[in-house]
Simulated assay, not measured.
Amino acid sequence: MDEGSSSGGRGRNKRFWIAEEDKALINALHELSTDPHWKFENGFRNGYMNRLEELIGKAIFGCGLNSSPHIDSRLKTLVGKFRAITQMLATSGFKWDDERNMISMDRSVYDEYCKVILLSLL
Rank of each mutant, 00 (worst) to 15 (best):
N101W: 07
G93Q: 12
K81T: 01
L29F: 05
L65N: 02
H37C: 11
N46F: 07
H37M: 14
W96R: 07
F61T: 12
H37E: 14
W38I: 04
P69H: 09
L75P: 01
E53M: 15
D97C: 10
I60C: 05
C63D: 07
N13V: 00
C63L: 06
L89G: 04
S104K: 11
K58E: 10
G43H: 08
R74C: 03
G9N: 03
N27S: 09
H30A: 06
K95R: 13
R10F: 12
S33K: 12
S5D: 13
I71W: 01
L75N: 06
S6A: 11
E3Q: 01
T86M: 02
G57K: 06
E53G: 04
C114T: 07
E31P: 01
L55E: 01
C63P: 01
S92W: 01
F94N: 09
H37G: 07
I85T: 01
H30F: 13
R10V: 15
L29C: 15
H70G: 04
K58C: 14
D72K: 12
T34G: 08
G64T: 10
M88K: 10
S5F: 01
D98L: 08
G11I: 11
D22R: 14
F16E: 09
E3L: 06
M49C: 02
W38A: 07
T86N: 07
F82A: 07
K58M: 07
W38T: 05
K76S: 11
G57S: 15
V109M: 09
T86P: 00
S104P: 00
S7M: 10
G9W: 12
V116S: 02
L118A: 15
G80C: 02
M105E: 08
R83T: 08
L119E: 15
D72Q: 11
E54P: 00
P69C: 10
L78Y: 01
R83C: 03
E53S: 09
R10N: 12
T77R: 02
G11P: 00
A84G: 06
L75F: 01
N101A: 14
A90N: 13
N27C: 09
H37T: 14
V116P: 00
I117Q: 15
M49G: 12
K76N: 08
D72G: 02
D97L: 09
I85N: 00
E54L: 12
G64F: 14
T77Q: 01
S67Y: 14
S33D: 11
I103S: 03
R74F: 04
L89R: 01
K58F: 09
E41G: 02
E31C: 04
A90G: 06
D2S: 09
S67E: 15
L52G: 04
I26Y: 00
C114D: 08
